[in-house]
Nucleic acid binder design. Structure first.
Lengths: 175, 175
DNA sequence: CTGTATCCCAGCGGATACTG
DNA sequence: CAGTATCCGCTGGGATACAG
């Protein structure tokens, strides 16, 4: 029980089969190696990476746009863009406007675009708790125009509050 | 137009009144000072802070639990816990079990608990893109038992994809 | 316009040892 | 059990200058 409690410490980790025997303690994988949140923080580890991604969502595609709008220095922008491309969150594509030389643009990949719920929920939290406001109309649904937020919902469609959550530890056993 | 385009560079910032005259460029507030996401990253700036918060959600309350489960060193845990308490994400409460001396426990505040959508969306992204899986049952709704995820939804209840979003720049003018 | 090279500083975070 | 003190290496990130 104590072993399980300790082993299952990561809420945000992998599925566990509770009926299996546990391997020796020293063979347990590190919690953070199996935690998708911890791994996500390795991909998007720095403040500047978030800022670059923010501007990519807003529509920045060129190097100087990222530098100015994310308010980071050129070396930092270059490093983050290179890393984000390597991680597959952005892609660097050649394009050519008529009569211009070939240029490159940074575009969100599906993998990168799928981070939007993370950014949106961060924004919602910041608005509520750091600016003490609920901002409406920042992001809306094309067509119906409804305000878009990141909310916790269950498969049945119910909106879920923090008190209505059942958190199951889901640590996977090592192979 | 160019001025507006540049001034409005932050998708994730504050409401702008487009019909007002702009102040001189050098009086514009820094983009990141007005961006709730950037400000949120100051509060929760480090990897270890996220790990500590993760364990708080999972139920850790004591110092040694945070150290073991978040896999951070004692000095780091102490520093992060102190900062998170100062920021109001956790609170340090005295408690006493019968026959024991007074101890302290770290509890999520409302402000801290409200970060759950951020963590959940990070987890969902990590599961999908770093572990190549969709995990079901990690977090569920007490009562109906339905899987809980952080989704982008509009006020009308529609699930919103990345292509269906209208991002309005909402930068507030300086006072 | 899109970077790279170099220098420099501050802060994160581990290891170790020590205290109430 | 719950930290603090100290040391030290690594990295993020700014400033500046230079290059294709």
């Amino acid at each position: 029980m104590d072993a399980y409690a300790s082993y299952n410490a990561g809420m945000l980790t992998q599925p566990i089969q509770m009926d299996q025997r546990l391997p020796p303690r020293d063979q347990w994988p590190a919690i953070n190696d199996d935690c998708p949140m911890a791994r996500m923080l390795e991909v998007l580890s720095t403040r500047s990476a978030f800022l670059i991604m923010r501007e990519a969502f807003y529509g920045a595609t060129r190097f100087d746009q990222f530098v100015e709008r994310a308010e980071v220095s050129e070396p930092v922008a270059a490093a983050r863009l290179r890393e984000l491309v390597a991680e597959g969150l952005l892609e660097k594509l050649p394009y050519q406007e008529p009569g211009q030389r070939t240029r490159h643009e940074y575009r969100l990949t599906d993998k990168g675009a799928d981070l939007l719920p993370v950014l949106v929920s961060m924004v919602a939290w910041g608005d509520r708790w750091l600016f003490d406001r609920e901002v409406r109309g920042r992001i809306s649904h094309i067509g119906c125009g409804g305000q878009v937020t990141a909310e916790l919902r269950c498969a049945e469609g119910h909106e879920v509050g923090i008190g209505e959550l059942e958190l199951r530890s889901t640590r996977r056993l090592p192979a």
